[in-house]
Design a protein around this nucleic acid. Structure first.
Length: 214
DNA sequence: TGCCAGGCCCTCTTTAGGGCCTT
C-alpha cells in the first residue's frame, strides 16, 4: 500500500535491480543466486550492490552455462537470508526498476517473505516502457535494446550487476528521449508507470496531455 | 491424475489464444 506523498516521486532517483536465479518461478522452488543493483540519484549512478548467494542446493547445468555462475562459486557464498537482509537495507524506500519487472518482483517478494521483510517502493518495468517508446526495435530483450540505443557496455550479459547497469543506462536513455522527443522534462515515476502500462492506442493522447499540461 | 511460470500485450479479442520476456 502506498503512503501519502506530498509530491510525486522523481523518475531519476531510484534503484535498478536484477536477479540471477535457479529458474523461472519461486512457486516451483526456484531461488535467487545473485542480486545486482545500482542506485540512481538525480540521473546519476551513485552506488551499486552485487552479491552471489547460496540457495542451499546445486544449480542445474543450464543455469551454470546461462549465467556463468558455477556451483563452486556458490559453495562459498553467503546464504540467501544474509544477502537479502543486506539488500533490503540497500533498496530502502526507493522506487524500483527492472527489465521485465514482474519476474524480479516475484523473486524479491519471495526472498523477502522468507525473512519477514518488506519494502515500500513501487516497481516500474523498463521492458514495458521500451515497448511503448521504441515499437520499431527488433525486439525488447535487454541486450537488443542496449544495442538499439547504442549504449556502452562491457560485453557481460546474464550477470546481475552487469544487467542492472545496462538496465539503468537504458532507463536514463528513455528519460532523455522522453524530454527530447516528447517534451517531458523530469517526468514523475508515477507518469512512467502510467506510460509503461498504457495501451498502444492511448499513448499518443497521454503524451500530448502531459506536454500540454506543462 | 496429470500437469507444472506468470504477467503483460496484441489481435479478424473480450465467454480467447498466442507471443514476448525474465532465469
Amino acid at each position: 500500500m502506498s503512503s501519502p506523498q506530498s509530491r510525486p516521486a522523481r523518475a531519476d532517483t531510484l534503484v535498478v535491480l536484477d536477479f540471477e536465479t535457479t529458474g523461472l518461478s519461486p512457486n516451483q522452488g526456484d531461488r535467487a543466486i545473485e542480486i545486482g543493483a545500482v542506485l540512481i540519484e538525480q540521473g546519476v549512478i551513485t552506488a551499486s550492490y552485487q552479491q552471489l548467494m547460496n540457495p542451499g542446493f546445486s544449480i542445474g547445468n543450464f543455469i551454470e552455462q546461462f549465467t556463468g555462475i558455477s556451483n563452486g562459486m556458490l559453495a562459498c557464498a553467503p546464504n540467501c537470508a544474509q544477502v537479502m537482509a543486506e539488500f533490503a537495507d540497500f533498496i530502502g524506500d526507493h522506487n524500483l526498476v527492472a527489465h521485465n519487472a514482474s519476474f524480479d518482483r516475484r523473486f524479491l517478494d519471495a526472498e523477502l517473505a522468507r525473512l519477514r521483510r518488506n519494502y515500500s517502493g513501487e516497481f516500474c518495468c523498463s521492458m514495458l516502457l521500451a515497448r511503448r517508446l521504441y515499437p520499431q526495435a527488433a525486439n525488447h530483450k535487454l541486450a537488443s535494446l542496449v544495442s538499439f540505443k547504442g549504449l556502452a557496455h562491457d560485453g557481460v550479459f546474464h550477470r546481475a550487476l552487469a544487467d542492472a547497469k545496462m538496465t539503468a543506462e537504458l532507463w536514463l536513455a528513455m528519460l532523455r528521449d522522453l524530454e527530447e522527443l516528447h517534451g517531458l522534462k523530469a517526468p514523475s515515476f508515477q507518469l512512467l508507470q502510467q506510460i509503461s502500462t498504457s495501451t498502444k492506442a492511448a499513448l499518443p493522447r497521454l503524451l500530448r496531455a502531459q506536454a500540454v499540461g506543462r
